[in-house]
Simulated assay, not measured.
Amino acid sequence: MSLLAVLGCAACAAVPEPTSRPEPQPAQPSVVQPVRIGVQPTSPAPPPTPQPTPARPEIFTFAGELTQGGWIRGRVPPGTVSATLDDTALTLDDEGFFFAAFDRDADRQTVLAATLANGRIIRSPVAIAPRDWKIERVDVARRPGGASEAFMQRRRPELERIYLSRQRETGAQGWRQDFIWPVQGRISGRFGSQRIYRGEPGSYHSGLDITTGESGTPFVAPADGVVVLAAEDFSLEGQLLIIDHGQGLNSAFLHASRLLVEEGEQVRQGQHIGDIGSSGRATGPHLHWGLTWRGSRLDPLLFVDGED
């Protein structure tokens, strides 16, 4: 017997036989991929080639209420460095969007103008529809003499505060929003209505009067903004609140019985900001809501959906 055979038998003797054998495991079936005769395997489709974004045309785009007392939101042509509506400068955001509006007595045509970085000027005429205002003609003369000097000594500082508050640029973004009604009630005074005293026109109504029948009814912010004036005792307006909505657009609320916000405070659309009253020169409890843009007076009815 060879040495290799002896070593092999010794190794066999050193390993004891197992007392039981493991159960045989079933064979795993092999997976066969189906092959389609005559069809070559396809590779993944390449990603689509990105298409360049088409350049914006060098025109103004805008939409809104193209009528006296109305407004527009729009965008200037690409490359614009400054823009105007007639002689009024427009405020542009980082993407060239703007707000503009038309006074109650605006002409039938105005012009948007943009100055481009290359010095070119693009002009876009805008047709403004006229409106039939409620005019009441009375056969009495206006009170002669006007306001007394004693009254004007009090009134001039009030007018100065109102003017300066409307010049503030707060960066508010409410001008982008669809406005909501500040309060539910009956419209008792419409924007633009006017009396003519024996041929002499009086001041037209510069806002919208909403009557609820009682003092203390809450009113809310129609859009986001920043409070730029909260006055407790003005001679005509009584408790007066002015909110800047950005881009030169602001709301004024007159004759309140209580103000719930302070100057410099940010407010959100729908936030309770005050209560209706009859403070100042008012014949009964109501909310006078006025809107202005860069000195132009606007019709609040053109900012909300339908009549309340």
Rank of each mutant, 00 (worst) to 15 (best):
F234R: 03
G185Q: 00
S206D: 15
G246M: 02
G185H: 00
T217G: 06
V226S: 07
P218L: 03
P222L: 04
Q167A: 14
R186V: 13
F234E: 15
I242R: 01
R190Q: 13
A221M: 10
V227N: 04
D178N: 14
I196Q: 06
I210P: 05
L241H: 00
R198P: 12
V226W: 06
A172Y: 00
Q167S: 13
S193L: 13
E200F: 12
G174M: 01
P182T: 05
F219I: 11
R176T: 15
A221E: 07
I187T: 09
T211D: 12
G238P: 03
D209F: 14
A223N: 08
G174F: 04
Q173V: 14
P182K: 02
R195Q: 15
G189W: 09
Y204E: 10
D209Q: 06
G192I: 03
L241W: 01
R168I: 15
R190I: 12
E232V: 06
L236M: 14
R186L: 12
D233C: 09
S193W: 14
S165T: 09
G225K: 04
E232Y: 08
P222R: 03
G207P: 01
E169F: 10
Q184I: 13
G207D: 01
S188A: 07
L229D: 06
F191T: 09
S215W: 05
P182Q: 04
G248E: 06
Q177F: 12
G213A: 02
G238N: 03
G199P: 04
T212G: 08
G199N: 04
D209C: 12
V183H: 01
E200Q: 12
S206M: 10
R166I: 13
R195H: 15
V226D: 07
A223F: 07
G248A: 03
G202F: 09
